[in-house]
Amino acid sequence: MMELRYLAPDTLDEAVGAFAKAGSAARILAGGTDLLVQMRSGMLKPGVIVDIKKIPEMTGIEQAADGGFRIGAAVSGMALAEHKSFGKVWPGVLEAINLIGSKQVQGRASAGGNLCNGSPAGDSVPAMVAAGAIVTVQGPGGRREMRVEDVPAGPGRTNFKPGEILVSFTLPPRPPGSSDAYLRMIPRTEMDIAVVGIGVSVTIKDGTVTAARVGLGAVAPTVLLVEDAAKALIGSKLDDAALAKAAAACSAACRPIDDKRGTIAYRTKVAGVLLKRTAAIAAQRAQGK
């Protein structure tokens, strides 16, 4: 029987040291809602677990003077939901994170874990991509920043270097008339995994979209930033033609698989349907409706 060591350092330096030292046998534990399930099912047998929840930088939510947010990688969905202003500025990111698992799971599950799990169907990731979030990672070689869409490398894999740990997400300040939304298609109403998930962030001035980002999940090996969809929205008044063009861009970006959760044809069509619905919600919010 293989032994399992559990470490819970108080500082990031200690965590990085222990994680890097243990190499591929090590896993980071935030909420554990993926890790513990994978261990119980026998998929994963780590030799070392590094729990990052005792590190203050990992569990804090900070709003900067310019209105931008920095969210620790281990912040739970429930902690974000209870934050007094985060949900007002980033309702789409919050609703995406709060869709992960059940109420009970929300007490533990983090956006950081959701990203590092590498699933193309992770709910928070398309919303973070749409938000233009930047992640800070720290490893034996020091700190660096990455665009969130550059983190996933494929199902279950990330582009982190050996020994690197995700530290936090930074979300930019919001110009007036900005908001976002996230929708996912699941056959049930909750407790399910996205068949398609889409995050849309927009800025609207005098009825015209001045900025937009679209993140699309569960339709390719990684979550996608769909720039063609954003281009179709920018400069438009979200008229039917613009929405149809953006929806077509989302469908065109899909590189899905047929599996037990959905077919290629279904996912491709639904990506477009959800773009229209998500953009409409984000626009309503941005215009204070």
Partner: peptide, 16 residues
Amino acid sequence: VDNPGFLDYRMPVCSD
């Protein structure tokens, strides 16, 4: 069987 669990064997939940 490709869906031997309650995640992908979709029984209705309360909100359904």
